[in-house]
Write a protein that binds this DNA or RNA. Structure first.
Lengths: 185, 185
DNA sequence: GTCTATATTTCGATAGAC
DNA sequence: GTCTATCGAAATATAGAC
């Protein structure tokens, strides 16, 4: 049941946003009463925290590999090598990535206020921040690094629905070329 | 007063999000009572609509120029020529663009449900959609067009604060090069 | 684990004085 | 134009039976 709640919540948070989604709505879509949810989660915010942990678990492997090898000469080249894995991860977890994009404010408010999960959040956000703040990278490269990541997420998640007619694997192939180009320059 | 309300609301919508911002909070920051807001706006949603109209007003000139000249041979080349104007617009209205990014769900819910403003919204969203759906543009170019727009917004608005240490004009210069490169390929 | 019923709080919105 | 006071609705959360 716990996972079913999270699945439904993920959908609703993507449709209306965390703050505009009530527990009544989640319960109704599941066909249970509102109180049933409280057996599995102490507060509404804990549902968001659990979804954040799903997200974090997925990105962890990639970030650890990056951290382990980031002593290498060129961080940009390293990211280029991890690009395919990153793209696969975004494609496989599109809804979760979208939820994070769409509810970044609510996430910061919730996850940023609970000390335990704050560490998790920092693992993720700070890893990206550390990568972009690496002194070996020039500002020009920093912009290209950030842009390449953003391009992948933007085209694959496609919040505005601009590429709704294009299959995900086709989008992935095209945006991979763009990202490589940005990182190679 | 009306404009002061909108300024404060813009800040708060960027800090906590539209749904998590109460009228009590807006009134408090202005040093007036909650009821005072209702003299200037009939509903809370109307504050969001007014901010959307600010945004729309700013983008209109650019979109009209694009529409007027879009009969030209190459839409990608046209966008390349309008790039500087676009970048300047984003820099000059960074908070407004950020608000649209962060509250896209609330905006769709509010603006998409009132028929009058729906037209405005379509002017904006649909213009972008039309540009990206232009049959003269290959899918490869489409991805590059979307990516270039997204890169500009991403680096200049900088929601995550990755470039907080870099002056806006410097960021603008760097991302301009990236966008040109993407559009020239 | 799930239910009904209810407590508590907060929000958007209105009434009416000044 | 702004205030105080208040209404009604909806939300989160809890109590206690089954």
């Amino acid at each position: 049941m716990r996972e079913r709640i999270l699945d439904v919540a993920l959908d609703l948070f993507n449709e209306h946003g965390y703050d505009a989604t009530s527990l009544r709505e989640i319960a109704q879509r599941l066909g249970v009463s509102k109180a049933a949810l409280y057996y599995h989660f102490e507060q509404k915010a804990d549902i968001m925290v659990a979804l954040h942990q799903r997200f974090h678990r997925i990105g962890q492997a990639l970030l650890e590999e990056f951290a382990a090898r980031s002593a290498e000469a060129d961080p940009v080249r390293l990211w280029l090598e991890l690009l395919d894995e990153f793209i696969d991860g975004v494609v496989a977890n599109r809804e979760l990535v979208m939820m994070h994009q769409r509810n970044s404010q609510a996430l910061r408010r919730i996850v940023g206020d609970t000390p335990e999960n704050h560490a998790d959040h920092e693992d993720m956000e700070e890893a990206l921040r550390a990568m972009l703040a690496d002194p070996r990278i020039s500002l020009r490269q920093r912009v290209r690094l950030a842009t390449s990541i953003d391009a992948v997420v933007s085209v694959l998640v496609d919040i505005e629905g601009y590429f709704g007619d294009v299959p995900l694997d086709q989008r992935a192939a095209l945006v991979r070329d763009v990202a490589r180009e940005l990182l190679a320059a």
